[in-house]
Protein backbone atom coordinates (compact mmCIF):
# COMPACT_ATOMS: atom_id res chain seq x y z
CA UNK A 1 0.00 0.00 0.00
CA UNK A 2 2.98 2.25 0.58
CA UNK A 3 4.02 1.80 -3.01
CA UNK A 4 1.20 3.88 -4.47
CA UNK A 5 2.95 6.76 -6.26
CA UNK A 6 0.62 9.48 -5.07
CA UNK A 7 3.22 12.06 -4.15
CA UNK A 8 2.38 14.42 -6.95
CA UNK A 9 -1.37 14.64 -6.51
CA UNK A 10 -1.29 16.66 -3.31
CA UNK A 11 -1.13 20.40 -3.39
CA UNK A 12 -0.72 22.14 -0.08
CA UNK A 13 -1.58 25.79 0.17
CA UNK A 14 1.23 28.15 1.08
CA UNK A 15 3.75 25.38 0.64
CA UNK A 16 6.01 27.46 -1.52
CA UNK A 17 6.98 29.97 1.09
CA UNK A 18 9.40 27.76 3.00
CA UNK A 19 10.31 29.34 6.33
CA UNK A 20 13.97 30.21 6.83
CA UNK A 21 16.03 27.60 8.62
CA UNK A 22 16.79 28.42 12.21
CA UNK A 23 16.64 27.00 15.70
CA UNK A 24 17.03 23.44 17.02
CA UNK A 25 19.76 22.69 14.53
CA UNK A 26 17.48 20.49 12.43
CA UNK A 27 17.53 21.35 8.72
CA UNK A 28 14.13 22.77 7.75
CA UNK A 29 13.79 20.29 4.92
CA UNK A 30 13.92 17.38 7.38
CA UNK A 31 11.36 18.76 9.76
CA UNK A 32 8.19 17.47 8.08
CA UNK A 33 9.68 13.97 7.85
CA UNK A 34 10.47 13.92 11.55
CA UNK A 35 7.03 15.31 12.39
CA UNK A 36 5.19 12.73 10.34
CA UNK A 37 7.43 9.78 11.27
CA UNK A 38 5.63 8.58 14.44
CA UNK A 39 2.22 8.49 12.73
CA UNK A 40 3.66 6.73 9.70
CA UNK A 41 5.45 4.19 11.88
CA UNK A 42 2.16 3.26 13.57
CA UNK A 43 0.43 2.78 10.21
CA UNK A 44 3.29 0.70 8.81
CA UNK A 45 3.61 -1.48 11.92
CA UNK A 46 -0.06 -1.98 12.69
CA UNK A 47 -1.76 -1.67 9.31
CA UNK A 48 0.57 -2.34 6.36
CA UNK A 49 2.56 -5.24 7.81
CA UNK A 50 -0.53 -6.93 9.34
CA UNK A 51 -2.38 -6.73 6.00
CA UNK A 52 0.66 -8.15 4.20
CA UNK A 53 0.72 -10.88 6.85
CA UNK A 54 -2.91 -11.71 6.05
CA UNK A 55 -2.12 -11.89 2.33
CA UNK A 56 0.84 -14.21 2.96
CA UNK A 57 -1.02 -16.45 5.41
CA UNK A 58 -3.92 -16.74 2.96
CA UNK A 59 -1.63 -18.91 0.82
CA UNK A 60 -0.54 -21.12 3.73
CA UNK A 61 -1.81 -24.60 4.42
CA UNK A 62 -3.38 -25.82 7.64
CA UNK A 63 -4.76 -28.93 9.26
CA UNK A 64 -6.73 -29.49 12.43
CA UNK A 65 -3.79 -28.81 14.75
CA UNK A 66 -1.45 -26.37 13.05
CA UNK A 67 -0.81 -23.80 10.35
CA UNK A 68 1.84 -24.78 7.78
CA UNK A 69 3.84 -22.19 5.81
CA UNK A 70 3.40 -23.13 2.14
CA UNK A 71 2.09 -21.73 -1.12
CA UNK A 72 -1.27 -23.26 -1.93
CA UNK A 73 -4.41 -21.88 -3.54
CA UNK A 74 -6.71 -24.29 -1.73
CA UNK A 75 -7.97 -21.64 0.71
CA UNK A 76 -9.23 -19.51 -2.16
CA UNK A 77 -10.54 -22.52 -4.10
CA UNK A 78 -12.50 -23.79 -1.10
CA UNK A 79 -13.79 -20.32 -0.30
CA UNK A 80 -14.91 -19.34 -3.78
CA UNK A 81 -16.07 -22.86 -4.68
CA UNK A 82 -18.54 -23.03 -1.82
CA UNK A 83 -22.14 -21.89 -2.38
CA UNK A 84 -22.32 -20.97 1.32
CA UNK A 85 -19.68 -18.28 0.75
CA UNK A 86 -21.65 -16.73 -2.09
CA UNK A 87 -24.83 -16.77 -0.01
CA UNK A 88 -23.08 -15.05 2.88
CA UNK A 89 -21.47 -12.42 0.66
CA UNK A 90 -24.84 -11.77 -0.95
CA UNK A 91 -26.45 -11.47 2.48
CA UNK A 92 -23.78 -8.98 3.57
CA UNK A 93 -24.32 -6.91 0.42
CA UNK A 94 -28.07 -7.01 1.10
CA UNK A 95 -27.51 -5.58 4.61
CA UNK A 96 -25.16 -2.97 3.18
CA UNK A 97 -27.59 -1.77 0.52
CA UNK A 98 -30.54 -1.64 2.92
CA UNK A 99 -28.59 0.18 5.63
CA UNK A 100 -27.03 2.54 3.07
CA UNK A 101 -30.42 3.51 1.63
CA UNK A 102 -32.01 4.03 5.06
CA UNK A 103 -29.11 5.96 6.60
CA UNK A 104 -28.84 8.13 3.49
CA UNK A 105 -32.54 9.01 3.60
CA UNK A 106 -32.62 9.68 7.35
CA UNK A 107 -29.19 11.32 7.42
CA UNK A 108 -30.00 13.64 4.55
CA UNK A 109 -33.29 14.80 6.07
CA UNK A 110 -31.69 15.41 9.47
CA UNK A 111 -28.73 17.28 7.97
CA UNK A 112 -31.04 19.31 5.71
CA UNK A 113 -33.17 20.33 8.69
CA UNK A 114 -30.11 21.34 10.71
CA UNK A 115 -28.38 23.21 7.89
CA UNK A 116 -31.29 25.05 6.31
CA UNK A 117 -34.17 25.21 8.76
CA UNK A 118 -32.46 25.92 12.07
CA UNK A 119 -31.65 29.62 11.92
CA UNK A 120 -29.74 30.27 15.13
CA UNK A 121 -26.11 29.16 15.21
CA UNK A 122 -26.34 28.25 18.90
CA UNK A 123 -29.28 25.93 18.28
CA UNK A 124 -27.58 24.51 15.22
CA UNK A 125 -24.45 23.64 17.22
CA UNK A 126 -26.46 22.25 20.13
CA UNK A 127 -28.67 20.03 17.95
CA UNK A 128 -25.67 18.89 15.92
CA UNK A 129 -23.96 17.83 19.16
CA UNK A 130 -27.09 15.98 20.23
CA UNK A 131 -26.78 13.96 17.01
CA UNK A 132 -23.05 13.23 17.42
CA UNK A 133 -22.74 12.43 21.14
CA UNK A 134 -23.84 8.77 20.74
CA UNK A 135 -20.82 8.30 18.44
CA UNK A 136 -18.62 8.61 21.52
CA UNK A 137 -20.47 5.96 23.52
CA UNK A 138 -20.27 2.19 23.38
CA UNK A 139 -21.77 0.44 20.35
CA UNK A 140 -22.30 -2.78 22.26
CA UNK A 141 -24.29 -1.03 24.96
CA UNK A 142 -26.35 0.73 22.29
CA UNK A 143 -27.15 -2.66 20.75
CA UNK A 144 -28.02 -4.26 24.07
CA UNK A 145 -30.33 -1.37 24.79
CA UNK A 146 -32.71 -2.60 22.09
CA UNK A 147 -33.44 -5.82 24.02
CA UNK A 148 -36.03 -4.31 26.39
CA UNK A 149 -37.75 -2.80 23.36
CA UNK A 150 -37.79 -5.63 20.89
CA UNK A 151 -37.80 -8.81 22.98
CA UNK A 152 -40.72 -11.26 23.27
CA UNK A 153 -41.85 -9.45 26.40
CA UNK A 154 -40.42 -6.14 25.29
CA UNK A 155 -42.07 -2.74 25.26
CA UNK A 156 -43.27 -2.97 21.67
CA UNK A 157 -44.90 -6.37 22.06
CA UNK A 158 -46.46 -5.39 25.39
CA UNK A 159 -47.90 -2.25 23.84
CA UNK A 160 -49.22 -4.03 20.76
CA UNK A 161 -50.88 -6.74 22.89
CA UNK A 162 -52.36 -4.22 25.31
CA UNK A 163 -53.81 -2.27 22.42
CA UNK A 164 -55.26 -5.48 21.03
CA UNK A 165 -53.47 -5.09 17.70
CA UNK A 166 -51.84 -8.54 17.91
CA UNK A 167 -52.61 -11.45 20.22
CA UNK A 168 -49.20 -13.19 20.07
CA UNK A 169 -45.89 -11.43 20.62
CA UNK A 170 -44.23 -10.63 17.31
CA UNK A 171 -41.20 -12.87 16.97
CA UNK A 172 -39.45 -11.06 14.13
CA UNK A 173 -38.64 -7.97 16.20
CA UNK A 174 -35.53 -9.32 17.92
CA UNK A 175 -32.96 -11.79 16.59
CA UNK A 176 -33.86 -11.31 12.94
CA UNK A 177 -32.69 -9.42 9.87
CA UNK A 178 -35.07 -6.68 10.95
CA UNK A 179 -33.29 -6.09 14.25
CA UNK A 180 -29.88 -6.25 12.53
CA UNK A 181 -30.81 -3.50 10.07
CA UNK A 182 -32.48 -1.48 12.81
CA UNK A 183 -29.33 -1.64 14.95
CA UNK A 184 -27.09 -0.71 12.00
CA UNK A 185 -29.26 2.32 11.23
CA UNK A 186 -29.29 3.26 14.91
CA UNK A 187 -25.50 2.97 15.21
CA UNK A 188 -24.34 4.46 11.93
CA UNK A 189 -26.79 7.15 10.73
CA UNK A 190 -24.59 9.84 12.24
CA UNK A 191 -21.79 8.81 9.88
CA UNK A 192 -24.15 10.15 7.17
CA UNK A 193 -25.43 13.18 9.08
CA UNK A 194 -22.01 14.69 9.84
CA UNK A 195 -20.44 14.77 6.32
CA UNK A 196 -23.70 15.76 4.62
CA UNK A 197 -24.24 18.55 7.16
CA UNK A 198 -20.65 19.63 6.57
CA UNK A 199 -21.11 19.96 2.80
CA UNK A 200 -24.48 21.68 3.21
CA UNK A 201 -22.94 24.32 5.47
CA UNK A 202 -20.50 25.17 2.68
CA UNK A 203 -23.23 25.86 0.15
CA UNK A 204 -23.24 29.57 -0.63
CA UNK A 205 -26.62 30.82 0.63
CA UNK A 206 -26.83 33.33 -2.20
CA UNK A 207 -27.20 30.42 -4.63
CA UNK A 208 -30.43 29.51 -2.88
CA UNK A 209 -31.59 33.12 -2.92
CA UNK A 210 -30.82 33.22 -6.64
CA UNK A 211 -32.75 30.05 -7.29
CA UNK A 212 -35.70 31.43 -5.33
CA UNK A 213 -35.55 34.75 -7.23
CA UNK A 214 -35.52 32.78 -10.47
CA UNK A 215 -38.81 31.25 -9.40
CA UNK A 216 -37.73 27.83 -8.15
CA UNK A 217 -40.04 26.11 -5.66
CA UNK A 218 -38.67 24.75 -2.39
CA UNK A 219 -38.62 21.25 -3.87
CA UNK A 220 -36.80 22.43 -7.00
CA UNK A 221 -34.18 24.19 -4.87
CA UNK A 222 -33.71 20.97 -2.94
CA UNK A 223 -33.34 18.69 -5.95
CA UNK A 224 -31.50 21.04 -8.32
CA UNK A 225 -29.26 23.01 -5.97
CA UNK A 226 -28.85 21.39 -2.58
CA UNK A 227 -28.64 17.70 -3.54
CA UNK A 228 -25.99 18.19 -6.25
CA UNK A 229 -23.92 20.44 -3.98
CA UNK A 230 -24.14 17.90 -1.12
CA UNK A 231 -22.83 15.12 -3.32
CA UNK A 232 -19.38 14.98 -1.73
CA UNK A 233 -20.84 14.70 1.78
CA UNK A 234 -23.14 11.95 0.58
CA UNK A 235 -20.15 10.12 -0.92
CA UNK A 236 -18.07 10.36 2.26
CA UNK A 237 -20.99 9.19 4.40
CA UNK A 238 -21.59 6.31 1.99
CA UNK A 239 -17.94 5.23 2.20
CA UNK A 240 -18.24 5.05 6.00
CA UNK A 241 -21.50 3.11 5.90
CA UNK A 242 -20.33 0.63 3.26
CA UNK A 243 -17.03 -0.15 4.97
CA UNK A 244 -18.60 -0.38 8.44
CA UNK A 245 -21.44 -2.67 7.39
CA UNK A 246 -19.44 -4.84 4.97
CA UNK A 247 -16.85 -5.61 7.65
CA UNK A 248 -19.19 -5.91 10.62
CA UNK A 249 -19.63 -9.06 12.64
CA UNK A 250 -20.57 -7.98 16.14
CA UNK A 251 -23.88 -6.32 15.20
CA UNK A 252 -24.95 -9.25 13.06
CA UNK A 253 -24.00 -11.75 15.75
CA UNK A 254 -25.63 -9.90 18.65
CA UNK A 255 -28.77 -8.68 16.91
CA UNK A 256 -29.54 -11.76 14.80
CA UNK A 257 -28.85 -14.16 17.68
CA UNK A 258 -27.09 -16.48 15.26
CA UNK A 259 -29.98 -16.44 12.76
CA UNK A 260 -28.13 -14.49 10.09
CA UNK A 261 -24.63 -14.44 8.67
CA UNK A 262 -22.20 -11.89 7.33
CA UNK A 263 -18.68 -12.08 5.91
CA UNK A 264 -17.19 -10.58 9.06
CA UNK A 265 -19.00 -13.15 11.19
CA UNK A 266 -17.78 -15.93 8.90
CA UNK A 267 -14.19 -14.69 9.33
CA UNK A 268 -14.66 -14.46 13.09
CA UNK A 269 -15.94 -18.04 13.17
CA UNK A 270 -13.00 -19.27 11.11
CA UNK A 271 -10.67 -17.48 13.53
CA UNK A 272 -12.31 -19.13 16.54
CA UNK A 273 -11.85 -22.52 14.84
CA UNK A 274 -8.16 -21.58 14.39
CA UNK A 275 -8.50 -21.90 10.59
CA UNK A 276 -6.27 -18.85 10.13
CA UNK A 277 -5.37 -19.38 6.44
CA UNK A 278 -9.04 -19.78 5.53
CA UNK A 279 -9.91 -16.66 7.54
CA UNK A 280 -7.05 -14.81 5.85
CA UNK A 281 -8.21 -15.77 2.33
CA UNK A 282 -11.72 -14.65 3.23
CA UNK A 283 -10.33 -11.39 4.61
CA UNK A 284 -8.39 -10.73 1.39
CA UNK A 285 -11.52 -11.25 -0.72
CA UNK A 286 -13.52 -8.98 1.58
CA UNK A 287 -10.82 -6.31 1.46
CA UNK A 288 -10.72 -6.38 -2.36
CA UNK A 289 -14.51 -6.00 -2.55
CA UNK A 290 -14.58 -3.15 -0.02
CA UNK A 291 -11.71 -1.34 -1.77
CA UNK A 292 -13.45 -1.65 -5.16
CA UNK A 293 -16.65 -0.20 -3.69
CA UNK A 294 -14.72 2.67 -2.06
CA UNK A 295 -12.76 3.36 -5.27
CA UNK A 296 -16.05 3.67 -7.13
CA UNK A 297 -17.33 6.18 -4.60
CA UNK A 298 -14.05 8.12 -4.50
CA UNK A 299 -14.57 8.98 -8.15
CA UNK A 300 -17.30 11.32 -6.96
CA UNK A 301 -15.32 13.10 -4.28
CA UNK A 302 -11.85 14.43 -3.53
CA UNK A 303 -11.55 13.94 0.22
CA UNK A 304 -8.73 16.42 0.70
CA UNK A 305 -10.84 19.25 -0.65
CA UNK A 306 -13.54 18.54 1.91
CA UNK A 307 -11.57 19.31 5.05
Amino acid sequence: MLGIPMTTTVTTEAADEAPPARGLGIPTAWRPYLQVAPLTAVFVLFLVIPILTIVIVSFWDYDSVQVIPDFVLTNYQELLGSPVTWKIYLNTVKFTVLVWALTLLIGFIVAYFLAFHVQSVVWQTALFLVCTIPFWTSNIIRMISWIPFLGRNGLINQTLINLGIVDHPLEFLLFSDFSVVLAFVHLYTLFMVVPIFNSMMRIDRSLIEAARDAGASGWQILTNVIVPLSKSGIAIGSIFIVTLVMGDFITVRLMSGGQSASVGLMIANQISLLQYPAAAANAVVLLVIVLLMVAAMLRIVDIRKEL
Binding site: P5, L39, F46, L47, I49, P50, I54, M246, D248
Partner: peptide, 24 residues
Protein backbone atom coordinates in the same frame (compact mmCIF):
# COMPACT_ATOMS: atom_id res chain seq x y z
CA UNK B 1 0.13 11.79 -0.61
CA UNK B 2 1.04 8.22 0.25
CA UNK B 3 0.79 8.89 3.98
CA UNK B 4 -2.53 10.64 3.55
CA UNK B 5 -3.94 7.66 1.64
CA UNK B 6 -2.49 5.35 4.29
CA UNK B 7 -4.56 7.22 6.89
CA UNK B 8 -7.68 6.91 4.74
CA UNK B 9 -6.96 3.21 4.22
CA UNK B 10 -6.65 2.80 7.98
CA UNK B 11 -10.14 4.21 8.30
CA UNK B 12 -11.80 2.04 5.67
CA UNK B 13 -10.09 -1.32 6.17
CA UNK B 14 -12.66 -3.38 8.12
CA UNK B 15 -11.76 -3.59 11.81
CA UNK B 16 -11.75 -7.37 11.85
CA UNK B 17 -8.94 -7.36 9.28
CA UNK B 18 -6.79 -5.13 11.47
CA UNK B 19 -7.55 -7.42 14.38
CA UNK B 20 -6.76 -10.59 12.43
CA UNK B 21 -3.65 -9.14 10.81
CA UNK B 22 -2.09 -7.91 14.05
CA UNK B 23 -3.04 -11.17 15.78
CA UNK B 24 -1.35 -13.21 13.03
Amino acid sequence: GAIFYLAIASLIVPSILVSLGIGL
